[in-house]
Design a protein around this nucleic acid. Structure first.
Lengths: 197, 197
DNA sequence: CGGCTCATCTTGTCACTGACTAGATAGTTC
DNA sequence: GAACTATCTAGTCAGTGACAAGATGAGCCG
């Protein structure tokens, strides 16, 4: 990637990104202020501009980083259902990244690093979907893929926005989602999916 | 500027809400500015404050209106699957409302009108879900409800954010969703579209 | 050592925004 | 027509993003 040398601050870019994730996770992207981040890092109000161009640039960097982590998380999971679980787990563990990733209006769409990371994530997603329990359903594979994506994305989104607090209760969200995935693609179909937790 | 400015606008509140929906649908809630709305309506920069208290108050009003329309839309649909379709249709037809509704950090959570409208929508949602094809699935009804909600919400969200443009193509999104809903709850199970409620 | 280059960061500034205050105006009611 | 209240205006303040110009210091080469 890029070599971030240690200069005046140490690693301002990384510090700003870390603070940004904090703020976003707590109060959403709308609460993000470049000047506030600068204050937290102990630098002048204009320092962040040099690293991220503008506010949207910072959010673009967050999204790009998120897509990278996301692709890794998906690649580590074996099987369609476990990829769905990984999708949900990623949203729960990286709420700030997740929120920004799926809001294009917050990003510079042509940023090369964003485009590259997004392509990698899209590929990982498609790879997971193509490993379907088979066209036993007699319908278009693509539609089943959209269904799987929608289920995981909807569950993750509702979870993050707090809408599932009541219905899910104390239960582990990932475990709940595993059941949901089973409803969409019953394991009895063709699934031998040897589980290794 | 505006020479023919009448002191009383007529229905400023409605005009502001309408402009707000325009802006939100185009550039998202983050692009909303009270002063810009005032300018569009031809009133002073502080006029909106009287109707909505503050920026969050305006968004709260949008969310409340949205929940009301949403409850109506759900109530008009018969059957679980058609309620899901109505869910998706609502998001497509009222993107601004939909976006704000599911972002609690943009709202005043204790606003009475919001609370009331939200309760009505929640009830409509639950009513739709309880009319499930039966516990033939042998699993918790509640989980099936979460699955249905997640599927519809995920599809709607991905649709609005433009992520489904490629996979869906020219096809009517509502029709596509009808197929997805069929994957989750196969019509052959125990249901020949039961219910009217 | 001396000078050069360049990424990094500071200082200063501007227009814009949300929020607040006080006051003006118009519609309503008695 | 006078009081009352909802509606809107005008003025102000701190905070913000963006921009421009300059300061700082690290790395490099002679």
């Amino acid at each position: 990637m890029n070599s971030e040398r240690v200069y005046h601050h140490g690693d301002l870019r990384r510090a700003l990104l870390a603070s940004a994730l904090d703020v976003i996770a707590t109060d959403g992207p709308g609460a993000l202020s470049l000047r506030d981040l600068a204050r937290r890092a102990g630098v002048s109000h204009a320092a962040p501009t040099h690293h991220f161009k503008d506010r949207t640039g910072l959010l673009t960097a967050v999204a790009a980083e998120g897509y990278g982590l996301f692709a890794d998380a998906l690649a580590d999971a074996a099987g369609l259902r476990e990829r769905g679980v990984a999708y949900v787990r990623f949203a729960a563990e990286h709420p700030a990244h997740f929120q920004v990733m799926f809001r294009p209006e917050l990003q510079h769409p042509d940023d090369p690093r964003l485009v590259a990371a997004k392509a990698r994530a899209t590929e990982a997603l498609r790879a997971g979907i193509s490993g379907l329990p088979g066209t036993a359903r007699g319908d278009d594979d693509r539609l089943a893929g959209i269904a799987a994506w929608s289920l995981a994305h909807g569950f993750a989104t509702l979870l993050l926005s707090g809408n599932l607090d009541a219905p899910v209760g104390d239960r582990d969200p990932e475990e709940v989602f595993r059941v949901l995935a089973g409803l969409l693609f019953p394991p009895d179909a063709a699934a031998t999916t040897p589980e290794s937790s």
